[in-house]
């Protein structure tokens, strides 16, 4: 049984725009899955259909084997949704927004009270519980939507750009919390524009562009398709000219304290460092020039766009 199974999903809007052109997608139970794509690729339409906020044109969607057409109530009860845009009543107090959502899912009032306290504490909102939602900061509003989506303890959680506008420290604590939830058995589907985040968090990935799935694989397998990686090396001392190294590395001098190097898949970083060390060059620190997934994402999407 899959947490999510999509077959030949199509959506054509009234204005004739074909947002989804028959996509197929399977997300394993317990997975932390990235659904990526450029703006307007069809991600939000796809998520909207799963959450039954958008009517599909054709195709089939199943959540834990419950078909949206035949067992909508059962399917919905397994799903938690954190949308991209704020969609709560800004005049309601924080704890009421969460309690109401629990009520909509039929959770008993006593249970709602306990869970509201738990999730608000976990997400650092407990002391804000009596504030109206409009008085929260942007990051707090995002966390409020996460707490709201978890109140009925869903088996599948969809996070649509959950960390947009959230500062780094908070983002990290949010991801720790999400990892914990995933470890405890909740399947998570994530869309984000922070590709580093997707690379770190997700085991499997699908990339959607122009209404089609152009990649659907494991994160490891996708990253392996990179032909080379570019690193920036910060040197202890200055270099006047490029050091000579064996192998198919491509080196460039960035400035007198910095080297830039392309390392093909068949070469190793370790070998390069050893050669540089032998040439009397000491490396102080290093970093990836571009996030690996970002590099792949851009090349995949660019290839897709260049297709006739």
């Amino acid at each position: 049984m899959y947490a999510l199974e999509i077959q030949q999903l199509r959506k054509t809007y009234r204005n004739g725009f074909e947002a989804l052109k028959g996509i197929d997608l399977k997300v394993q139970k317990g997975d932390f899955f990235a659904l990526l794509g450029p703006n307007g690729a069809g991600k939000s339409t796809c998520i909207g259909i799963i959450a039954s906020l958008i009517n599909k044109t054709s195709g089939r969607v199943k959540i834990f084997d419950h078909d949206l057409d035949r067992e909508l109530i059962e399917a919905k009860s397994r799903l938690g949704m954190v949308p991209q845009e704020f969609n709560f009543n800004i005049f309601e107090p924080v704890q009421e927004i969460i309690a109401n959502q629990g009520g909509y899912y039929g959770v008993e009032p006593r249970e709602i009270k306990q869970r509201t306290q738990f999730y608000l504490q976990e997400l650092g909102l407990w002391d804000k519980r009596r504030l109206q939602a409009r008085d929260l900061s942007g990051g707090m509003k995002r966390r409020l939507m996460i707490a709201r989506a978890l109140i009925h303890q869903p088996d599948l959680l969809i996070l649509d750009e959950p960390t947009a506008g959230v500062d780094i420290e908070l983002r990290r604590s949010m991801w720790d919390f999400m990892r914990e939830i995933n470890t405890n058995g909740t399947t998570i589907i994530l869309t984000t524009h922070y590709l580093e985040e997707a690379e770190q968090m997700c085991r499997n990935i699908a990339i959607i562009d122009q209404g089609q799935i152009i990649q659907d694989t494991s994160m490891k397998a996708l990253l392996k398709t990179l032909n080379s990686e570019t690193f920036i090396l910060y040197l202890t001392e200055t270099v006047a000219e490029l050091p000579r190294v064996k192998g198919s590395y491509t080196l460039r001098i960035h400035d007198e304290h910095t080297l830039e190097v392309d390392i093909p898949n068949d070469e190793t970083l370790n070998d390069l460092i050893l050669q540089l060390h032998a040439a009397g060059i000491q490396i102080d620190s290093m970093r990836n020039k571009v996030n690996r997934l970002e590099e792949l994402f851009v090349s995949l999407v660019t290839n897709q766009e260049s297709k006739p």
Binding site: L53, I73, K76, N87, F88, N89, Q101, Y104
Partner: peptide, 17 residues
């Protein structure tokens, strides 16, 4: 009002007939 501020979605995603 619920439509305008989109909090009608809270009900629409929930398993409520």
């Amino acid at each position: 009002g619920a439509k305008f501020s989109r909090h009608i979605e809270e009900m629409l995603v929930s398993p409520i007939p």
